[in-house]
Write a protein that binds this DNA or RNA. Structure first.
Length: 445
RNA sequence: UCCUCGGUAGCUCAAUUGGCAGAGCGAGCGGCUGUUAACCGCUUGGUUGUUGGUUCGAGUCCAACCCGAGGAGCCA
C-alpha cells in the first residue's frame, strides 16, 4: 500500500504514487475511460480509469461503482487543468481500485432537490459539496474565535446549560423536568460570565444556546451556538474596539484558510476583504434618522410599511437591512433605548432613556451578529432596574452579590455562530450553517 | 400567533373547461478514449398529504385537518 494522503495536500504529491481513502462523489465516462470523483473529507479529486492500462476486473468494478460507494484508489498523481475537484486541477491515474462497500441507491442525486427533501436527508446532505464547504468554514470560524480570545488573555469558562430561571426574563425558554422541578435550557451564559470575570478577569463561554421563540425566518434556529466574551474594567468604547478586532480576525482567518471552500460556495470575497478595523459607529439616534429618511424617500408602499418606526422601537430585520446597505463592512449601532434592551445595561450618562448597548450588524442583509453592552456595576441602580422590569429579586441574589464584592465597570457580548458563518459564507439560510439544525418545525434527523 | 405560497413516480416538475396520470433526472441493460449535472438507444417506475362531501366521473370543485417553506413579531 502506497502513501495514504489527504486530497487537500494533493499538490505536494505530483508524480508520486498515492492512496486515497474515500467515497465516490460522482462518476462519468465513455467506453474505455471512466472518471471518478472521489471525496475523502478534505477535498474532492478525479481518479481516471483507462481500460487498456488496467486489469479487466478493476475497470469493470470502476464502471459499476454507485454514488457514495466507499473506495480506496491507488495511482500516480498528475496535474491536469481539466480535472474537477476541490482543489481542482489534479487527478489520479488509477492503477488499483478497491471497493470497500458498494452503496445502495443514494437519494441525493447531482440534480436539483427541494429544501424539505434535503432537510429530511440532512444526515446525507452534509456530504454534498456546498454543505461540506460551509461546515468546514464553520469549524474554522469556531477555531478562529477561540484563537483570538486565547491569545488575548481570555480564559474559557463553561457556563451551565440547565439553569434555574430566565437569564434575561424576556425570551421564551425550553422547560426541562429536573427531578420534579422545572429548569430551563440556557439562552445565555452571560450572568455566569459576570461572576467568572471576578476570578479570571477576561473570560468567555462557548456552547449551544436555546430559544423557544416561534420564529420562522431564515435567521432563526431554536438551538444555535454562541460565543460570549466578558471583560472586567472595560467600558462600551473598549468593547467596540475589542469586537472589531475579534470579528476582523475571524474573517481574515477564513480568507486565509478556506479559499477553496469559498470558491465552492461562489462567495464574492471582496466584501470580506473590507472587514478590517475600524467599523463605522452609528448611534441609535443617527440610525433612526437615516432609516426614517430612507422610508420617506422610498416609492415602495410595502417597504414604507416595513420601515415604520417610532423612537424607542427596536430595529426589525427590514430596518437593519436598509441601514447596512449604506456601508461596505459591519457596523456598530450603539445607544439603544433602555426600554427595548435588558435590565442589566448601564444607562447613558445624563440620558437614562438610552443605555450603553451595542449591536454589530453584518453587511449584505445578514443582520445582527453580535449583541453586547456595558453592564451596570452599581448595586443600587441594578436593584432599581430589576424592580422596574418586574423581575423576581430573589432569583438574582447571587448576581447582586457581584456588585457588593469589588464591583467594576465591565462589558461583554454574544456572537451567533450560525449567523456569522452564513454571512461569511454568503449562505441564504442559517440552518445550513449548522450540521443538524433545529428549527420551529424540525428536530429530525 | 398572524399573513402568503406549496404538497402528483425515489427526486424536480407538468396535467387545458371536471373526462385514459405524463416528462426529465435517478435506477437497470447496451454503446462510446477526456468527462465536468456528459451523450445515444431500450427497460423500470403512482394510496395525486389525510378525511369527508358534490358529481355519471375529482389530481382538478367544496369543507375540515395534517405537513412543509417564506415573511412579520421576537431575537443572535
Amino acid at each position: 500500500m502506497s502513501n495514504i494522503v489527504a486530497i487537500q495536500n494533493i499538490a505536494d504529491y505530483i508524480g508520486q504514487e498515492v492512496t486515497i481513502q474515500g467515497w465516490l462523489y460522482a462518476k462519468t465516462g465513455k467506453g474505455k475511460i471512466q472518471f471518478l470523483q472521489v471525496r475523502d473529507g478534505t477535498g474532492i479529486m478525479q481518479a481516471v480509469l483507462f481500460k487498456p492500462n488496467l486489469p479487466p476486473e478493476i475497470f469493470e468494478a470502476g464502471k459499476r461503482l454507485t454514488q457514495e460507494s466507499a473506495v480506496v484508489v491507488r495511482g500516480v498523481v498528475k496535474e491536469n487543468g481539466r480535472a474537477p475537484g476541490v482543489p481542482g486541477g489534479f487527478e489520479i491515474d488509477t492503477a488499483d481500485l478497491q471497493v470497500v462497500q458498494l452503496s445502495q441507491e443514494y437519494p441525493i442525486t447531482p440534480k436539483e432537490h427541494g429544501v424539505e427533501f434535503l432537510l429530511e436527508n440532512r444526515h446525507l446532505w452534509i456530504r454534498s459539496r456546498k454543505q461540506w464547504a460551509l461546515l468546514r468554514i464553520r469549524a474554522t470560524v469556531m477555531r478562529a474565535c477561540r484563537e483570538w480570545l486565547d491569545t488575548h488573555g481570555y480564559v474559557e469558562m463553561s457556563t451551565p446549560i440547565l439553569t434555574p430561571a430566565a437569564g434575561e426574563g424576556t425570551s421564551t425558554l425550553f422547560e426541562v423536568d429536573y427531578f420534579g422541578d422545572t429548569v430551563y435550557l440556557a439562552q445565555t451564559g452571560q450572568l455566569y460570565n459576570e461572576a467568572n470575570i471576578y476570578s479570571f478577569g477576561k473570560v468567555y463561554c462557548f456552547g449551544p444556546t436555546f430559544r423557544a421563540e416561534k420564529s420562522k425566518t431564515r435567521r432563526h434556529l431554536t438551538e444555535f451556538w454562541m460565543i460570549e466574551p466578558e471583560t472586567a474594567y472595560q467600558d462600551l468604547d473598549g468593547l467596540m474596539e475589542m469586537e472589531e478586532q475579534f470579528v476582523s480576525h475571524v474573517v481574515q482567518r477564513v480568507l486565509q484558510e478556506r479559499r477553496p471552500e469559498l470558491e465552492v460556495l461562489e462567495r464574492d470575497i471582496r466584501m470580506l476583504e473590507n472587514v478590517t478595523p475600524p467599523f463605522p459607529r452609528v448611534s441609535y439616534d443617527e440610525a433612526f434618522e437615516r432609516i426614517t429618511k430612507i422610508r420617506e424617500e422610498s416609492d415602495d408602499p410595502e417597504l414604507k410599511e416595513l420601515l415604520k418606526l417610532e423612537w424607542g422601537d427596536d430595529f426589525g430585520s427590514p430596518h437593519e437591512t436598509e441601514l447596512t446597505k449604506l456601508y461596505d463592512r459591519p457596523i456598530f449601532v450603539y445607544g439603544f433605548p433602555t426600554v427595548c434592551k435588558a435590565f442589566y445595561m448601564e444607562p447613558w450618562p445624563n440620558r437614562p432613556e438610552v443605555c450603553k448597548s451595542v449591536d454589530m450588524l453584518a453587511p449584505e442583509g445578514y443582520g445582527e451578529i453580535t449583541g453586547g453592552s456595558e453592564r451596570i456595576s452599581d448595586p443600587d441602580l441594578l436593584l432599581k432596574r430589576i424592580h422596574e422590569d418586574n423581575l423576581p429579586e430573589e432569583a438574582f441574589t447571587w448576581y447582586m452579590d457581584l456588585r457588593k464584592y469589588g464591583s467594576v465597570p465591565h462589558s461583554g457580548f454574544g456572537l451567533g455562530i450560525e449567523r456569522t458563518v452564513a454571512w461569511i459564507a454568503g449562505t441564504h439560510h442559517v440552518r445550513e450553517a449548522n450540521p443538524f439544525p433545529r428549527t420551529l418545525g424540525r428536530v429530525y434527523p
